[in-house]
């Protein structure tokens, strides 16, 4: 098991190095960054001065190592637009997105798993049919529309919750529900199909042949095997939710990472974009690595040699 974890961590490290190199390269995507910073009216001398001031005149490898080195100490550079440290800007925004993402994820999971199990126990039964309708609508309705409708109904007509913003915790209620409804169907369906497959296996039948009650058969024998694909899917879903939904954050006027990324792209504030991409990529690497390790905990066959 330790060898497996070590191996996964080495792989994750390699991916991190690659990801950081690509994020670094983004700076040079649009040509010479010094000219880009100098702007349309900038003179050649200005560009040259900027090149020296920002260190663009040094060899690429030196610049990369320097950038990685400061990123490791939490220094993600200066925002070109605000001229303050990028880490400060992101620090102000990240908690909104994390709260939104984690809460939506938990809500989706809490709904998806029991519903998926219940649907699988009686395929084509009434629970299964209701779950299917919920899943199809959840996938089909665009979240911006659902968000706007929710604001009109619960914010404007009934006045139960704030219309927008994240000043109070009530402001999170609608966006969390809308976002989790978007993430729930896939997790519910994969739980359902995994459960249906596993319930038909011989080892579930063998467990029943031992005289175990159905509850034990479902939770000890079936669920453990059925959640393996869900773990991998959930890691990607959580990554998706944590990277900030630009749509949801815009509809509910939440100042999260998604909106920040969008605004920074429009302002050509490359260091901010670069930092956001780096953070989110590393987050994905961490989540998928965690999912792999969790799967290995659940399924001994994945651990390799016993």
């Amino acid at each position: 098991m330790l060898a497996f974890i070590a191996k996964r961590l080495v792989v994750a490290f390699c991916v991190c190095v690659t990801v950081s190199a690509i994020s670094f390269a983004l700076m040079f995507l649009s040509g010479d960054p010094a000219i880009a910073i100098a702007g349309a009216g900038g003179r050649a001398q200005d560009a040259e001065a900027i090149r020296i001031a920002y260190g663009f005149d040094r060899p690429l490898i030196v610049q990369y190592l320097d950038w990685v080195g400061s990123a490791l100490t939490g220094d993600l550079g200066q925002s070109i637009y605000f001229n303050i440290p990028v880490s400060e800007i992101i620090g102000n925004r990240i908690s909104v997105t994390m709260w939104l993402g984690v809460l939506s994820f938990l809500l989706a999971l809490v709904v998806a798993v029991p519903l998926g199990i219940a649907a699988a126990l009686r395929p084509n039964g009434w629970i299964d049919r209701i779950a299917l309708v919920l899943a199809v609508t959840g996938q089909a309705i665009p979240s911006f529309w659902l968000g706007l409708m929710a604001i009109v109904v619960f914010g404007v007509w009934y006045g139960w919750v704030p219309i927008s913003g994240a000043k109070t915790w009530q402001g999170f209620i609608l966006p969390v529900i809308v976002l989790s409804y978007y993430a729930m169907p896939a997790m519910m369906r994969i739980t359902r199909s995994g459960m249906i497959d596993v319930l038909a296996t011989d080892y579930v039948r063998a467990a029943r042949a031992k005289g175990l009650p159905m509850r034990v058969v479902i939770f000890r024998h079936a669920l453990r095997n059925a959640v393996l694909p869900l773990v991998s899917l959930a890691a990607v879903q959580l990554g998706l939710l944590l990277s900030g939904s630009i749509v949801i954050e815009s509809v509910f006027a939440l100042n999260g990472l998604g909106r920040l990324a969008w605004e920074s792209l429009l302002r050509s504030d490359l260091p901010v974009v670069q930092a956001i991409i780096l953070i989110l990529s590393l987050l994905y690497v961490a989540l998928t690595t965690f999912a792999d390790i969790l799967n290995a905990v659940l399924d001994p066959r994945l651990r390799g040699a016993n």
Partner: peptide, 8 residues
């Protein structure tokens, strides 16, 4: 092979 639960 299929009658024994692989995860227990």
């Amino acid at each position: 092979t299929s009658a024994l639960n692989p995860t227990l």
